[in-house]
Amino acid sequence: MTADFLLSRYPYILIAVLFGIGLYGMTVKRNLMKKVIGMTIFQTSIYLFFIQGATKQGATIPVRVPEMGTSPELYINPLPQVIVLTAIVVGVAITGVALSLILVLHRRYGTLDEVELLRRMRESA
């Protein structure tokens, strides 16, 4: 069972590993840049989950080829791709905002260490 499971499910396991790595970067790493990097990995793993779940054996990319006709089993499911497309842009937008926040707070507090930052923030309040 295990072997079978691994064979058919290994992408999910690796995606879960990526997911976990991303979360690890966001929660355990103290450097804020590292957190942002972790966030990117975390988001990317979700995109991968969508894309790899949408694969279809014996199907091609979702661009109509006139000779092939439009039978559903011939083309890969376009909906998850659209969702991921949207999500990627959202992800980059979040990264941009996160970076601008990092710049401001680095300018103010001179450090990117989260614990240190929170300490300085409480002190100055």
């Binding site: 979360l23 966001m26 975390f42 959202v90 926040l101």
Partner: peptide, 20 residues
């Protein structure tokens, strides 16, 4: 206020995890 970016970045990270 002065501490707002730090707090907001934490919010953003939490929010990103939540959204993810």
């Amino acid at each position: 206020d002065r501490g707002a970016p730090v707090a907001t970045l934490r919010y953003l990270l939490f929010g990103a995890v939540g959204g993810g």
